[in-house]
């Protein structure tokens, strides 16, 4: 009973956090991507791709590492469980976000086509 409460609270919290953080990044990352690709249509589709991928990977990861525990006997234990696991997830999300922000500018050169060297 207490376990079920903790699990359902954790899973719904995870979904909420992932979807809303994703929305936030979707709205703000657009300008970041504009800098890389300079093409409205392409940026929109890359952005939507990234949003879907982000939601899938993070929600999947969080669902996948739901820790199996022994049965709880009170609500305090379940609240502690939920807070510990959510904290872990939030820290992971933050680290991934910064890695993403560091890597995208580095990938800039990979995705851009080479410049034309005019031989005249």
């Amino acid at each position: 009973m207490y376990n079920l409460f903790a699990y359902i609270l954790y899973l719904s919290l995870v979904l909420f956090v992932v979807i809303f953080v994703g929305r936030f990044l979707y709205n703000n990352g657009r300008f970041y991507l504009m800098d890389i690709f300079n093409d409205e249509k392409l940026v929109d589709s890359v952005n939507r791709f990234m949003y879907a991928g982000y939601c899938l990977v993070n929600a999947g990861g969080a669902f996948n590492c739901l820790h199996k525990t022994n049965t709880f006997s009170s609500y305090t234990e379940s609240v502690v469980y939920v807070s510990e696991n959510t904290g872990e997830l939030l820290i992971l999300l933050g680290i991934m976000h910064f890695i993403n922000m560091l890597v995208l500018p580095l990938l800039k050169n990979v995705f851009k086509s080479k410049k034309v060297v005019s031989k005249t």
Partner: peptide, 17 residues
């Protein structure tokens, strides 16, 4: 719930990748 979470989560991860 434990079993379902790991199943659905694993599948979602795969699809995301």
């Amino acid at each position: 719930v434990e079993e379902l979470a790991s199943k659905v989560g694993g599948f979602t991860l795969f699809v995301g990748f």
